[in-house]
Amino acid sequence: MDIDVLVVATIARALAFATPLLWAALGEVIAERSGVVNLGVEGMMALGAVTGFAVAFTTGDVWWGLAAAGLAGMLGSLLHAFVAITLRADAYVSGLSLTMLGLGLSALIGRAWVGRPLPDPMRTIDVPWLRELPLLGPMLFQGQYVLTYAALLAAVVAWAMLFHTRGGLVLRSVGENPTAVDAAGLHVRPVRYAAVLIGGLLAGIGGGYLSLAYRPSWGEGMVNGLGWIALALAIFAMWHPLRVIVAGLLFGACFTLAFRLQTVFPPELLTMLPYVFTVLALVFTAWRRGRLAFGAPEALGRAYLRGER
């Protein structure tokens, strides 16, 4: 294959593949920025995927389906928020339990929807005018889903909100130093609740993309580990929304290249490519930036209890 065809196709496919990762990772960034780690992404995506499919199938409208998907993810995250924030139980166990619960529940609900094609799935679009551009047209503006562009937009919005609004400052402060926020007369828990729920909403949308657009059908195990990858990407992006785009695209490019380069490299080794590459990219970043590279929110994973430090 010509190298320019390869590059164009790889980037175009990286975008399509990475879209659910972008949504879910973005959600996790927001939740973790407020100090609440949520390992339930895989479960929330599965809930979103099955609910979105069921609703889209019943109503015949993918957009209702998508809304339902986001809501389902949000409901899942509400459970996590209650256990980890209100009850102050261990956020890691709570998230893992949510993943188990979400995968089981989605499979259980989904029994009725297996093997049914979605009559009217989400359509791909060509962006008018921009699609005509040489190279960039086929690379970015042909045959993608609206949700892909929406994910990119969401990343920019999240960045602006987190880093350039007072609300964003409060959210980040809650994740860095909840005691200080509390002392300043602001509630910690509502902020954390909001962040976790937004995280669930975005993860649910990511799941909805899978069952409404990427592969319009439902099957048990259809999320297939993407939630875990999204978790890793959130950290890989150092909890920064714009870097999530870069991280997601890199991972997506590796994933699709694993099939495109099979004629050149042994395929069984290529399947490891996205994972090996992620580790190498992290090492490289760390090496370039020195030891202070990773800005985890200081209070990440710790329940907040007033009067306790």
């Binding site: 780690v37 890691y92 005691t179 200080a180 926020v181 950290i235 800005g295 985890a296």
Partner: peptide, 23 residues
């Protein structure tokens, strides 16, 4: 008030490497 609200820079400049995602 035990400590001021974390300045915005603190969130990006980040914690010491040892302090990554911990609980």
């Amino acid at each position: 008030a035990e400590a001021p609200v974390a300045p915005p820079a603190a969130a990006t400049a980040g914690a010491p490497a040892g302090g990554a995602a911990h609980a």
